[in-house]
Design a protein around this nucleic acid. Sequence first.
RNA 1: GGCAGCGUAGCUCAGGGGUAGAGCAGAGGAAUCAUAAUCCUUUGGUCGGGGGUUCAAAUCCCUCCGCUGCUACCA
Length: 517
Amino acid sequence: MTKTFYITTPIYYVNGDPHMGHAYTTIACDVMARFKRLDGYDVHFLTGTDEHGIKVLQAARDGGVDPQTFTDQVSQKFQDILPALNISNDDFIRTTSARHKKGAQVLWEAIAKSGNIYKGGYSGWYAVRDEAYYQEDETEIRADGKRYALSSGAECTWMEEESYFFKLSAWGDRLLEFYDKNPDFIGPESSKKEVISFVKGGLKDLSISRTTFDWGIPVPGDEKHVMYVWLDALSNYITALGYGSDDDSLFQKFWPAQFHAVGKEITRFHCIYWPAFLMAANIANPERVFANGWWIMEGQKMSKSLGNVVTPEDLINRYGVDGARYVLLRDLPFGNDGNFVHENAVNRLNSDMSNGFGNLAQRTLSMINKNCGGQVPTPGDLSIEDQALLIEVREELIHEMRKEFENFRFSAALEHFMKAVNHANMYVDRQAPWKLKKENPDRMATVLYVLAETVRALAIAIQPFVPASANKMLDQLAITEDARTFAHLDKAHALKAGTALPEPQGVFPRLEVQKAA
RNA sequence: GGCAGCGUAGCUCAGGGGUAGAGCAGAGGAAUCAUAAUCCUUUGGUCGGGGGUUCAAAUCCCUCCGCUGCUACCA
């Protein structure tokens, strides 16, 4: 039976427009999803938008529209960037959709049924400006007799609110045991330490409903409450699979998820609350949560006031779709924070894709076109060097890449790829087929065959990162679309001599270095 | 303030107790099939500052500086 692979991005909060960070996480997931599909897995890839909560409500009011209209508009922007970045998601979930609301309520009921929800009161020093409650020792009384939050200086008033609570305090030990038994659950290591120390510090019960506004999912049986946005939001990973609906076949098939990608700022929600909710509802936990870092731009934090916020469209305009995908994953190890420098990105694309891989393909195809009648040449006996190169690109490379993908090391996978490209270019120079043309045409045909076969294997392997370009290259080798998976890397699916090839065209045009954002 | 991470060649980043690594950028050479691309050689760092442990520290410990995230109901 085919192995399933369920992968999710976070659902993006619609209080702002999509930016480079959203693109980054989404692209990383897409690359993983494509890799797994090519590797024979039955993949389900989910992304979506998180649309409830007071911030969205306020943003809608500020814009003078009702919240549903507002979220429709912003969610659409997030949906629009998916085809623009060539994202292969199988589904898009919105937390305002009927299917999600229903599923979230079913989850609530499942947790309630287990005895983990109780009604209580929430009280504390509330700062309207911060939308946050503070402990008494987090506030001070100033000369004017009023109370202010120490951290923000916002004025606080005593508030009491009826609220439902989740018995998070009861789950600390079971969470720690879960982390212990599943050491790969949280990555990278820094996030894991943070989460474990947080849990060890002791967990308090979690308020999971609100009565102060109504832009949310009604609590089953007590509709003056709406569900806490994180309980609402996290449940998307199962509601999108039909959890709690009449047809939960996808849920049966794909849950638990193999991989939740998150930004490093939301690891706590995914690594503490989410498993606790699921365990309480007696649902299996996801296998892995991996947090990616944040980008800064040319050494500076991205911010609206600095005017250096980079949007997905900016990246596409500058680097093309495949170029944007490539430069985001090439240098920075997934999980680390990074500094995005345009000059480096251009250099990277030019030297790796244009000069390295693109030129390898072009010189190979061009020689075949001119010297072999535009057909795949007929190879003779293979030398040791021929065989070594073919083994590297057909077998060893994908083996190495697979290992790196297991640990989300996209940049390391690309390093292996570029190493193979370099070896192929070395091979061209050593064999010098342009000399063989006069001295030994049969040997030239063999060398060009080995090279064409090398380009085929490399193009197949690089598909997850630069799908459109890789496909163009495979078109030029007359590889049919159903013969492009990793299973086709082997000798049995090698190029057939005599196959007519189209006129070669450059696939990775060089970019000009340009300064400033 | 507390917790965690980071600070390594001009740039982007690996590494992590035993004579400092990669790619790009720079320099020199070879070749000319190719998107003037390729291939070879090569310059370059007292691994943020200071202190300590050790025969030996970029790597462990302490401290200081700078940056980042979290600090509970706020994505």
